[in-house]
Amino acid sequence: MCTGKCSRFIAVALYPLAVISIICNIVLFFPAGDIKYAKDGHITEEVKYMGGLVGGGLMVLLPALYIHLTGKQGCCGNRCGMFLSIAFAAVGVAGALYSFIVAVLGLQNGPLCKTILVWWAPFKDSDSSYLTDDSKWITCTEPKDIVQFNIGLFATLLVTSSLQLILCTVQMINGLFGCLCGACVEKGPL
C-alpha cells in the first residue's frame, strides 16, 4: 500500500474515534442526563480534565485533517508533506495518550457521588477494586446509576484513545517511510 493511501485510511479511521471521544466527554458532564450536577459542581474530577474533548478529540481531529490532506490524491508526492504528517501524528499521539491516562484515572478513582449525606469519591484509594465487585455500587445513592455511567463512558474513552494511539503511531511510521522513500509512482507501460 502506498504511503498516501495509508495516510488517507488512517485519517478516515481517526475521524469517528475523535467524535466518539468528544461526545463521551460531553456526556460525562451530565450524569443521569441532568444538568444540576454540573451546575452544583458534583462532577467526577477526571471529567473536568477533558481528556476526551481536548486530548482524544481536538488533539486527534486536527492531525487527522492534515493527515487526510497528505494522502488526498492517493499517493503523496511531497516528502515535506509526509515529514509534517509525522509531527502532526505526534500531536495525535500526545492527545490520545492524555485521553488514555485520564480515562485510566477515571476508572481507577471511580465516580464522585452522594453517599447518604456527603458528596465524595468512595472508591478512590480503596484497597479492592469496585470495578469487579458490583455489590459496592449501591454505596452511591445519587446520581442514579452513576457507577455504571462512569465505567461505560470512561471505558469507551479508554478503547478509543488506545485505537487513536495505535493509528497515530502507525502514521508516524508511514510518514517516515513517505519522507525517506518519496512518492510511490505507478509505472505505466513503456
Rank of each mutant, 00 (worst) to 15 (best):
L165C: 08
T139V: 12
L112I: 01
D40I: 01
N174T: 11
C168Q: 07
F30A: 07
T70C: 12
D127S: 10
L167F: 14
E46K: 09
Y66I: 09
I138H: 05
A64E: 08
V185W: 09
E46M: 13
T115Y: 03
L117I: 13
G56I: 08
E186T: 09
G51Q: 03
I116C: 00
F83A: 15
A121V: 05
Y15W: 15
F83W: 10
S135V: 06
T169K: 01
I146S: 03
Y15D: 05
L131V: 10
F149T: 07
K187N: 13
F88N: 02
F177D: 10
I173K: 05
V118I: 12
K187Q: 14
W137K: 04
L112F: 04
P16V: 08
T139S: 08
K124Y: 06
I26D: 05
A94M: 12
V27S: 04
S161R: 06
T70G: 00
G57M: 06
L131Q: 10
L105Q: 14
C140N: 03
V147I: 15
S135R: 11
F29H: 15
G56S: 09
A64L: 08
F154Y: 14
E45F: 11
E142M: 05
C6L: 14
V12T: 12
I67M: 06
M82A: 13
C113F: 01
Y15C: 11
D133V: 08
V19A: 14
V27Q: 08
